[in-house]
């Protein structure tokens, strides 16, 4: 390994600032830790945050930035005991997304140990902090609890706006500022709500053959309100 890896640049290079990822107060700490790699206090790091808060995006950006070192992203649901040694082989960093859907707890336990013992790194993403995940294997639970964990908080208005602009753009829709401002002031302020709201507006605009304007946004928002008094996905999220 070359010694260059420890050259400490004076200039700050926001590896995740590009690619549409908005670094904001709610995710700044998570981004800061990722950018610090490999100067971490432990071999692993846990990112947690609500659905839609950009965890997968961060994992993918991080893996892409360190592709040369050997980084791979896997879904927790795909982990099983037998796959662990092969998964680790040839990688410096293993990133596991969506720990909430982990099925084989022993597999993650082995992965944790193997990465640690062999000087590799492990990044985990979950919707909740490790202490609140329903992990049954005590050996795994205590290891997860001991890892540094950093949360992505609830979005502030700027993030909420940026998330929606990006999601509209992903659907090739250009939406005026006034529509975004209207929504941010009135919607449930969560990442999940932003995602579903954009979806609903897109759908309504298609079926009604109308441009996305404030009146259309109001209609969608009111429709949601009239139906349940609450956003319909609230119960779906188990709240």
């Amino acid at each position: 390994m070359s010694e260059r890896q420890f050259a400490l640049d004076l200039g700050h290079s926001p590896a995740f600032g590009r690619d549409d990822f908005l670094v904001a107060p709610c995710n700044a700490e998570a981004v800061a830790w990722l950018e610090r790699w490999p100067a971490w206090p432990a071999h692993g790091l846990i990112l947690y945050g609500p659905p839609g808060s950009g965890k997968s995006h961060l994992l993918a950006a991080f893996a892409a930035a360190h592709a040369d070192a050997g980084a791979v992203v896997v879904a927790a649901a795909d982990l099983d005991d037998a796959s662990i040694p092969g998964l680790v082989d040839g990688q410096r960093i293993v990133l596991v997304d969506d720990i909430d859907r982990l099925r084989a707890e022993s597999a993650l336990f082995h992965l944790h140990n193997l990465t640690r013992e062999t000087g590799r790194f492990l990044v985990l993403a979950a919707s909740r902090p490790p202490s609140h995940l329903p992990v049954r294997l005590p050996d795994l639970a205590s290891r997860l609890n001991a890892l540094p964990a950093v949360g992505i908080g609830a979005p502030d208005d700027a993030v909420l706006a940026a998330v929606m602009v990006k999601q509209f753009a992903d659907r090739q829709l250009k939406v005026g500022e006034e529509v975004i401002a209207f929504l941010v002031g009135r919607m449930e302020r969560s990442f999940a709500a932003a995602r579903l709201l954009v979806e609903a507006i897109d759908r309504t605009s298609l079926t009604e053959k109308r441009a996305i304007t404030v009146p259309l946004a109001r209609m969608v928002l009111d429709g949601i309100d009239d139906r349940q008094g609450e956003l319909p996905w609230r119960t779906a999220n188990g709240r």
Binding site: F6, P38, W40, A42, V88, R92, L114, T118, G119, F121
Partner: peptide
């Protein structure tokens, strides 16, 4: 507190018989 950055230099083989 565990040799984190050391990993960047001493990547052990998965194969190694004992654990470091």
């Amino acid at each position: 507190a565990r040799p984190a950055p050391q990993a960047a230099f001493a990547l052990c083989e998965v194969d190694e018989i004992g654990a470091p």
